[in-house]
Design a protein around this nucleic acid. Structure first.
Lengths: 340, 340
DNA sequence: TTGGATAATGTAAGCGGTTACATTTATTAC
DNA sequence: GTAATAAATGTAACCGCTTACATTATCCAA
């Protein structure tokens, strides 16, 4: 038996409109009739058809979540799982459904708005040069990014990448390190550049040397971190500490260091970025810059909903603070053999 | 300017019905009129309103994806990320949207059908005693689980857990191990029990000892694997090999073993289960039983769509084969000092 | 040329809600 | 008790599509 608002109306001996009012908690319904309607609803096990509601109200009640293509190795990063937790949690609170999409084959974001599939878009891991975002902005489609891109009008929630990196490297400097390497992801993502800039800034402020031979690119997987570190270790003069712009690379890097027979942190200190769960279980445990990933997720949803409802206007730019979590992989620089 | 099928009809000088036929590739439209309509659609940048279509056709064109609660530590497991890849990929192919839900506060699955929010449900990481599933089955709601539960009519896609575990342990036996430990997750999940049973079966077939002191429970996180292994190592007589029912626990276990000053695989061999990406980057690299996680994802979606379309009927029970991936963490048993 | 069959197109109802506006009922003031 | 006013409820149009059925156009045979 199919149940519609009509049936409930008949059962409760009222009009469809009244039933609708009860469902939507309109104040202008007598408690007597309200009870009759509620009784009818309970008896029949009626649930309003969301599709019908969405059609009349012209709202999708839905947020599109765009995640990086599965092809993209970075997708396996625990960062995404964690931020997803924040998204789902907050979306439920705000009463929005979350539609999952993968960003591949130059996926046309705008279409999701045109066919009324979503009210807003949440984009994760977008390339800094992505042109689709400009289109969204120009069409005034509500959207928010997790992470900055090269578009000054973009709405985003990010972490204080530069500051976090700066703090980490400063910590290394204060521990006596003078030759500090850098391993990080492609500048295709702004956060990677910012972390690098934080690293550079810390070096400059302390008049420490910087050179190409101290840095290596990796792509945010254990594998690439491993390879990058191996290359770095081939140089004639290797650093006494290395700041790695994300934890997965850091874990790979630690593997390379240990394989070379070097000790962490005695021979080379390592600091990562992210503070993924795994960071507490490496050997040694990983000192790292914690991003408030979960909170970035909930914040992003809240802001997006405000954009959707017109309670806020873009551009929205939020940066949440990071925190240096000190564990075993960082340490004071090894005192050189005193061969004066 | 809002665009509806009406506008296109006027522009192309045809009726709404004809436009609808063109959109839905109905064969009964002259190529002349079809072209006129297509031209009008292109000119206006018209996209059909999916909500309206869904209301008339009474289809949500949507699959609900239920993932374990964020509270649940296991959610961070790379297993989920990987299976998600399979889901999104296949859902796109089949033309279904994927709605993301989290399974918490005794979430009422059935409601999603009643309010026509979804056409089917895909449930990941469901507890073996979950009663909600019975309700789904009895209501003939299309759904599919990844992983068996205690309900013989349940539809599921799983891996050959027992067989995989059996192969792994048999491999250890063939490498000369006689005292083989087991570390695995709670029997709240059937796959854990099956893996344990595979372990037991292999022991029995080779007349090897088995005892409580050889096994320890963990919960599929590095942390718990670490703790469980530590406890196991406190026993008076420790195993020469340990089969760990999932990779994250195995990684934690390896940490505990190394911390104790023991070598892998010389002192204790370790075999995991899953073959997550990380398994290739541990030290030593982890021998493990590979599940076809991605394929489990695509298979689950395909089957679910067939259930939705009435092309198949439950119960549907699929088990995909596993494969033993041999890396460094397993090895021949250390030859005892020959004190005959 | 005509008529019957067939293909193309149009008409209009319906999907299940919401809501502006109309109508009825209750409340209050005198 | 009645009129004026406010509150509760009802009526009916509408959201933007799909589709059964009706109508018109096209084609072919006789």
């Amino acid at each position: 038996m199919k149940k519609t608002i009509e049936h409930i109306a008949q059962l409760a001996n009222v009009s469809k409109a009244t039933v609708s009012r009860v469902i939507n908690n309109s104040p202008k319904v007598t408690s007597k009739t309200r009870e009759r309607v509620i009784k009818a609803i309970k008896e029949t096990g009626y649930y309003p058809n969301v599709t019908a509601r969405r059609l009349t109200t012209n709202k999708a009640e839905t947020i599109g979540l765009i995640i990086p293509s599965p092809q993209d190795k970075t997708f396996g990063n625990p960062f995404y799982t964690e931020i997803l937790r924040g998204f789902t949690h907050q979306a439920k609170i705000e009463g929005y459904d979350l539609l999952l999409f993968i960003n591949e084959h130059q996926f046309n974001y705008s279409q999701l708005f045109h066919d009324r599939r979503v009210d807003g878009l949440l984009l994760v891991g977008v390339n800094r040069g992505d042109k689709g975002i400009i289109q969204l902005s120009e069409n005034k489609f509500p959207y928010i990014l997790t992470g900055k891109i090269d578009y000054e009008k973009a709405n985003y929630v990010d972490a204080e990448n530069r500051k976090g990196a700066y703090q980490a490297v400063t910590y290394l400097v204060n521990s006596g390190h003078k030759r500090i390497g850098y391993l990080g992801g492609s500048f295709d993502f702004v956060f990677n550049q910012e972390r690098f800039e934080g690293y550079l800034q810390a070096l400059k402020e302390h008049n420490l040397e910087y050179g190409k031979e101290l840095t290596m690119e990796s792509i945010n997987t254990e594998e690439s971190g491993y390879e990058a570190m191996r290359k770095l270790l081939e140089a004639s003069s290797i650093p006494t500490a290395v700041f790695v712009a994300n934890d997965l690379d850091a874990i790979g890097a630690m593997k390379a260091i240990k394989e070379k027979g070097l000790k962490i942190p005695e021979d080379i200190a390592v600091i990562g970025f992210d503070d993924i769960q795994l960071a507490s279980y490496t050997e040694p445990t990983l000192t790292t810059v914690r991003q408030p990933i979960y909170e970035m997720g909930t914040t992003a949803i809240s802001l997006l909903v405000q954009l959707i409802k017109g309670k806020k206007e873009g551009p929205l730019k939020i940066e949440l603070p990071t925190q240096l979590i000190i564990r075993e992989s960082s340490g004071k620089v090894k005192t050189k053999k005193k061969n004066i």
